[in-house]
Simulated assay, not measured.
Amino acid sequence: MNIAYWIVAGLLALFYCYAGTLKVIRSRDQLRPMMAWVDRIPLPALRALGTVEILGATGLVLPPLTGIAPSLAPAAAIGFVLLQTGAIAVHLTGGDRRIALNVVLTATAAVTIWLATSL
């Protein structure tokens, strides 16, 4: 289970670290081709969302790696499930039906929760 956690959580952390960094450093114009919804939220909220994603990615990796507060890893994964639930709602309310990635990320975060509780 330990190896499975590191594979799943590592991939999830890489994705969120990348996506969060893009949201923090890129402009709306640069993000628009990848994320059609960026015009519907204020720029400070977009930057905050990116920061939350980076912190969540850190929370998946550092606590189990260091052994300090390892209960933060499932908490970070729960946060990602909630984040993706909100993302699905934003997509659907905006008329965007492309939620396959969000569903996959939700399922991956749910598996991460299960794997983290068995560490």
Rank of each mutant, 00 (worst) to 15 (best):
I7P: 05
V8N: 01
R98I: 07
L92M: 07
R47P: 02
T51G: 15
R28Q: 10
T66F: 05
A109R: 02
A36S: 14
R98W: 01
N102E: 12
I41A: 14
P63A: 08
G86R: 10
G56F: 04
R26Y: 03
P33H: 12
E53I: 12
P44C: 13
T58C: 13
H91I: 01
L72T: 03
C17P: 01
D29Q: 14
I3F: 06
A89R: 13
P63E: 08
P63K: 04
M1R: 12
L82H: 05
V24D: 01
L105N: 09
L119F: 14
R40V: 08
C17F: 14
A89H: 09
N102R: 07
R47V: 13
A76V: 03
Y16E: 06
D39R: 11
V111Y: 00
A69Y: 09
D39C: 10
A36V: 11
D29N: 12
A9L: 07
L14Q: 05
L82V: 15
A48K: 02
A89P: 03
P70E: 06
V24K: 12
L62A: 15
P74T: 02
V103C: 09
G59S: 07
A48W: 02
M35Q: 09
M35C: 09
I3K: 14
L62E: 02
Y5D: 06
A69R: 10
V24E: 01
L92V: 10
A45N: 03
L65M: 14
W6P: 08
S118C: 12
R47H: 08
L62G: 00
I68M: 11
L72N: 01
V81H: 00
I7F: 15
P70I: 13
P70M: 10
L60E: 06
P63C: 11
I7L: 15
G59R: 01
G50V: 10
L14H: 04
L65E: 01
I113N: 00
A75C: 06
I68T: 11
P44V: 14
T112G: 08
A100N: 02
L115Y: 07
L119W: 08
T108K: 07
V52D: 00
T58A: 15
A107L: 15
A100H: 05
L14D: 01
Q84Y: 08
G20I: 11
V103Y: 03
I113P: 00
Y5F: 14
I68F: 13
I78D: 00
L22S: 01
A9Y: 04
P42L: 11
M1H: 10
G10E: 09
T93H: 10
T21W: 06
T117H: 09
G56M: 04
L55Q: 06
L65R: 12
A57Q: 03
Y18N: 12
T108V: 13
T112V: 13
